[in-house]
Design a protein around this nucleic acid. Structure first.
Lengths: 193, 193
DNA sequence: CCTACCGATCGGTAGG
DNA sequence: CCTACCGATCGGTAGG
């Protein structure tokens, strides 16, 4: 993994993967260009051959993370028609995006969103809205029966937020599978019937 | 507000208030000692007359924020005996701690917890646990009827997390009172009966 | 893609 | 509590 091994595209992908892992661990601010360069065996200035700036690396991570999330959510929505089943599948998907096998991109996207330049946030907002809209449709058909005529978008944000915040305290120590997060919500929702 | 006006204690308090406001806006990492000094009309090195380090300032904010939160939560628990009422009051309290009139200390405590030195986290953990325990007691009497035998501590963290994450997206633009956050939860819980 | 370097910033210190 | 300063770090650039 030394020097200029691989194509430009594969080098770029390796940098993004390393950056996502580092930013997830230490946060965007405390991850340095030198950290990322070292992780892929580059000199300290070489990352700028692939990206204009440190923020551009984060933006690339966010774009990839969001596209994957939307794609998977759409697949879930297409597969499960029953509201209860669809919501459960979305819950599991979101937990997987946060804590699953290759969750670095989506975790960084959520956790470091504030560090994106305003122009990037604006550009990516359509993907965010799409993801939340899928959740809104799933929740809308369930909510009227319980919390009547209440803002669905607000409920979506509260629900997603409860999972997102787990990035702060969840320990993947193996003692407890992350899936318990989705199951707890499922039980709460199921108990309402 | 220039020079050495006021007692040492009041100067310290002014520094903490300014630091909490700045750290809430820009985060711990992007708030500099010089920012804080300027906000209270000091020279760039003078904050170290009152605090050993930048991290010590955050620790002082967190301690104050946590003590206030625990105190208020205990008062709520003592006042409301009925589970439903108690939970509603706790929800309103937490929303107030996040978005209310003097919420800088508690918001920074929650948002920048990860930036605390490990020793400070350990020292303050007892206060955190106390706050969560109050929530646990309030939820425990409500949960068995709906999501039977499920980890109460996990539910507490999900519930608090849903509100905590609102630090990321809530806009105090006046169009919508923060109290809606508590009310939405109340409606969801109320609709379960 | 590397090496060497620049300019700026920052936490913290010293000496008064 | 101020002024002046240190040492380290960091994003980014130049020249090859």
């Amino acid at each position: 993994m030394r020097g200029s091994a691989g194509t430009a595209r594969s080098r770029r992908a390796a940098m993004l993967a390393a950056a996502a892992r580092l930013m997830r661990e230490k946060g965007f601010a405390k991850t340095t260009i030198r950290d990322i360069a070292r992780a892929v065996g580059m000199g300290s200035g070489s990352p700028f051959c692939h990206f204009r700036s440190k923020e551009a690396i984060l933006a690339a991570i966010a774009e990839t993370g969001l596209k994957r999330a939307v794609e998977r959510a759409e697949r879930v929505a297409a597969r499960y028609a029953a509201p209860q089943r669809r919501l459960l599948a979305l819950l599991r998907l979101h937990v997987d995006l946060l804590h699953g096998a290759r969750s670095d991109f989506s975790a960084v996207t959520l956790h470091e969103w504030h560090a994106l330049p305003a122009a990037e946030k604006e550009r990516l907002r359509v993907l965010r809205r799409r993801y939340e809209a899928i959740w809104g449709e799933a929740l809308a058909s369930l909510l009227p029966a319980r919390a009547a005529h209440h803002d669905v978008a607000l409920c979506v944000r509260l629900l997603l937020g409860s999972l997102n915040w787990s990035l702060r305290w969840w320990r993947a120590d193996g003692k407890r599978p992350a899936r318990d997060l989705a199951r707890t919500w499922t039980n709460i929702f199921a108990a309402q019937r």
